[in-house]
Write a protein that binds this DNA or RNA. Structure first.
Length: 376
DNA sequence: ATAATTGTTCACGAGGCAGA
DNA sequence: TCTGCCTCGTGAACAATTAT
């Protein structure tokens, strides 16, 4: 270990104090994603006096590491001036912010190496604990405060760009949806037809058992955008099959209700990929824009129809694609479709570009974290 | 007979409670 | 503080049934 590595214990101290006055301030939880969020605890009948109080720029962590996916629950609190957290978490703070920058320390905690370290250093029989003493024994590079702030600024700049892209993607999706509504929903046409005239569901595609293919699981789908984040390679063993420009619609509780729908654009041309058994693949028929299919799949009216037609018992309800094909909608003017496709294309292309850019930026972020080990 | 669809169960991650 | 346990959500495996 380098000489410039320092013992964390010299820079931090625990925070004491319980909610004995039963104050009415926000109750927060924290997760292995290393963020605070509004707590999901059921606190009816709970004695809130035992809860701990955490203040802005203090940290909280969960000493229990053995049941959290090889990760440690730790986050820097910035959402409010003060909040309550469960007694299960240990709050602590940096003694002197001019010697150790809290944001810089949080960056160190975000490193995957720190997760592994915390797990490795956990001990106990029934439950493995990363104790306060172990936390104090953590060694990390602590350069000058100026250098720390420089590193933090670099990291935050990347984060900001990701957020800007994310916002842009959201706006673009809204725009696409607005164009769709204007042209196809508010469009007056009293002649109606069924969806099967325009789309094909679960098109037949060949994949051999055991063949190595790209695989997209439910977790890769976003609830808010068309972008698919990540894929894996594995031998084909069943499930849905699709290609670029197909639309994936999650058909099972609660993924459908949550809006998990994707526009496939991350495959190679002509590549056939596999995915979760719980996707319905929607494909545009001849002369129909795949962009239109995506917008339809995200349309409130269509989604309400899909949700209302879910069947199955024991809480695991699914949509049947036959029902989707029977969805009734106004007949589409072919010229309208051509014009819509032209208008929507730049939107979808930009979303694809920005989503790719964000993947690169995310890699870059990880690189900045990895680099910290050399900054001492 | 085989594939596709539908129903059921299982495991377990994650967040947290509460008594000793 | 320690630790036994609860609850909810969810993906996936497995089983049963139906279609081809």
């Amino acid at each position: 270990m380098r000489e410039s590595y320092q013992k964390l214990g010299n820079y931090i101290q625990p925070v004491v104090g319980r909610n004995t006055e039963l104050r009415d301030i926000p109750l927060m939880g924290l997760s292995i994603n290393k963020v605070f969020f509004p707590s999901i605890a059921n606190t009816i009948g709970t004695n809130m006096g035992t809860y701990r109080i955490i203040k802005r720029n203090q940290f909280g962590y969960g000493p229990v590491t053995s049941r959290n996916g090889e990760k440690i629950t730790i986050a820097l609190f910035k959402d409010h001036d003060e909040a309550l957290i469960s007694q299960a978490y240990t709050p602590f703070e940096v003694k002197d912010k001019n010697k150790l920058d809290p944001e810089y320390l949080m960056m160190w905690f975000r490193r995957p190496e720190f997760d592994r370290y915390a797990r490795f250093k956990s001990h106990g029989s029934a439950r493995e604990i990363f104790s306060w003493d172990e936390m104090c024994d953590v060694m990390l590079p602590i350069p000058s405060i100026e250098k720390q702030r420089e590193i933090v600024a670099e990291y935050q700049a990347i984060e900001q760009r990701i957020q800007i892209n994310q916002k842009l993607i959201e706006k673009l999706e809204e725009t696409a949806q607005a164009i769709y509504r204007e042209w196809f929903v508010e469009f007056e046409n009293y002649e109606s037809t069924f969806l099967e005239e325009y789309i094909e569901t679960n098109p037949k595609l060949e994949l051999k058992k055991g063949e190595l293919t790209s695989y997209i699981e439910m977790a890769n789908l976003s609830e808010t955008s068309m972008c698919i984040n990540g894929k894996t390679e594995r031998g084909y063993q069943g499930g849905s099959r699709f290609q670029n420009e197909d639309i994936l619609l999650a058909r099972i509780t609660p993924c459908l209700e949550n809006g998990k729908t994707a526009f496939v654009n991350i495959l190679n041309p002509n590549e056939v990929a596999a995915g979760s058994t719980e996707f319905i693949v929607m494909r545009a028929k001849k002369n129909i824009s795949p962009y239109w299919v995506y917008c339809l799949a995200k349309d409130d009216e269509f989604r309400a129809y899909a949700i209302s037609s879910m069947i199955g018992s024991s809480g695991r309800q699914r949509v049947h694609e036959k029902y989707l094909e029977e969805y009734s909608l106004p007949k589409i003017d072919p010229q309208n479709m051509i014009d819509f496709h032209k208008s929507a294309r730049p939107i979808f292309e930009t979303v694809k570009l920005k989503s790719k850019e964000n993947q690169k930026l995310t890699e870059l972020k990880e690189l900045v974290l990895a680099k910290m080990a050399q900054s001492g």
